[in-house]
Amino acid sequence: MLLIYTVEVFMQIRLTGKTAIVTGSSGGIGLAIGKALALAGASVVLTGRNEKTLQQQVDAITAEHSQCQIRYHAVDLSTADGCQELTAREPKADILVNNLGIYGAKPFFELTDDDWLTIFHINVLSAIRLAKHYAQGMKDNGWGRIEFISSESAINIPSDMVHYGVSKAALQAAARGLAKVLAGSGVTVNSILPGPTLTEGTETFIGKMAEERGVTLEEMQTLFLNENRPSTLMTRFARPEEVANLCVYVASEQASYTTGAALRVEGGIVETSF
């Protein structure tokens, strides 16, 4: 008689003992990532420019989840000085999530040199500076996780936000290149590609459109997707927590064989399978 036994294995992500830094995390996707990493046991550092907002977010998380180890640093990471200030306060990290970024619609022919430089300083150079610093300590320790939060706009370059799409494509290239630099070191580097996500900033962005067209916020979300992302398979905006879930996995021990990848959490907007 042939007996077949089945074993159910449940993934339990534990990041206890790991220090994680999440940039641009006073709200939106960054805050969701920071909270999720803290709930998984990591000691989390939030960053942003507004100390009051950061303190409120830390207080809210710890009031709801007293076990979370979470702190913050109010720094402007769009500058070299701001990045140096953060690395001086937090010289080592096991997990770095480069989430800091800005966006905004502007016709291509109206983009100035300053527009391009601003978005590159904030979206790209901040991530490169921090990755350069923290990757060296991770390599020495033989373990680390670096994530660059890119966007599906890196593949589907929006015609009204060309500079944004280009900056996100640059992050994907940086992640792939750094993964090669750190090959065999125990440090993984990946980029994460969210789709349209319902954050506070997005609500403001979509809200202005809704007001101009005389529709509700919910109706405008549907209109936006139909007009700008008609290939969506989920037919809705992502929740920040849905992006954070992927980021927590990529930061885990379980993701030890995933590196140099562009991982999508964009609701099927990108038409290509590869």
Results as ranks from 00 to 15, higher is better:
residue 1 M to F: 07
residue 6 T to M: 04
residue 8 E to S: 12
residue 8 E to V: 12
residue 9 V to G: 01
residue 11 M to Q: 07
residue 12 Q to D: 13
residue 12 Q to N: 15
residue 14 R to T: 14
residue 14 R to P: 02
residue 15 L to V: 09
residue 15 L to I: 05
residue 17 G to Y: 02
residue 19 T to I: 11
residue 23 T to W: 02
residue 23 T to S: 07
residue 23 T to G: 02
residue 25 S to G: 08
residue 27 G to C: 06
residue 28 G to I: 08
residue 34 G to C: 11
residue 37 L to G: 12
residue 38 A to R: 11
residue 38 A to E: 10
residue 38 A to L: 10
residue 38 A to G: 15
residue 40 A to T: 13
residue 40 A to R: 13
residue 43 S to G: 08
residue 45 V to M: 10
residue 50 N to M: 02
residue 51 E to G: 03
residue 55 Q to D: 01
residue 56 Q to K: 06
residue 71 R to G: 06
residue 75 V to M: 11
residue 83 C to L: 07
residue 83 C to A: 14
residue 84 Q to K: 14
residue 86 L to T: 05
residue 88 A to C: 04
residue 88 A to P: 00
residue 91 P to G: 07
residue 94 D to V: 00
residue 95 I to P: 00
residue 101 G to H: 11
residue 104 G to W: 09
residue 106 K to I: 07
residue 107 P to F: 13
residue 108 F to S: 12
residue 108 F to N: 08
residue 109 F to P: 02
residue 113 D to G: 07
residue 114 D to N: 07
residue 117 L to G: 00
residue 119 I to W: 03
residue 121 H to K: 09
residue 122 I to R: 00
residue 127 A to N: 02
residue 129 R to K: 04
residue 130 L to H: 02
residue 131 A to I: 00
residue 134 Y to E: 00
residue 137 G to F: 00
residue 138 M to P: 01
residue 139 K to D: 01
residue 140 D to P: 00
residue 143 W to N: 01
residue 146 I to M: 04
residue 148 F to P: 01
residue 153 S to E: 14
residue 154 A to C: 08
residue 155 I to G: 01
residue 156 N to S: 09
residue 156 N to H: 12
residue 160 D to C: 06
residue 162 V to W: 08
residue 163 H to M: 06
residue 163 H to D: 12
residue 164 Y to N: 09
residue 165 G to K: 09
residue 166 V to G: 03
residue 169 A to H: 06
residue 170 A to P: 09
residue 171 L to M: 14
residue 174 A to R: 01
residue 174 A to I: 04
residue 179 A to D: 08
residue 180 K to P: 01
residue 182 L to W: 00
residue 186 G to M: 04
residue 186 G to D: 02
residue 194 P to F: 08
residue 196 P to A: 05
residue 198 L to Q: 06
residue 198 L to G: 02
residue 198 L to T: 05
residue 199 T to Y: 07
residue 199 T to W: 07
residue 200 E to K: 10
residue 204 T to D: 10
residue 205 F to A: 08
residue 208 K to Q: 12
residue 211 E to M: 10
residue 212 E to D: 14
residue 213 R to A: 15
residue 214 G to W: 09
residue 214 G to N: 11
residue 218 E to H: 08
residue 220 M to A: 10
residue 220 M to Q: 15
residue 221 Q to M: 13
residue 222 T to K: 14
residue 237 F to W: 14
residue 240 P to E: 14
residue 244 A to H: 13
residue 245 N to H: 15
residue 245 N to C: 14
residue 246 L to C: 13
residue 246 L to Q: 09
residue 246 L to P: 07
residue 247 C to H: 06
residue 248 V to N: 13
residue 250 V to S: 11
residue 252 S to T: 07
residue 254 Q to G: 11
residue 256 S to L: 04
residue 259 T to C: 09
residue 260 G to R: 08
residue 261 A to W: 00
residue 263 L to M: 15
residue 263 L to D: 05
residue 265 V to E: 09
residue 265 V to M: 10
residue 270 V to N: 14
residue 270 V to T: 15
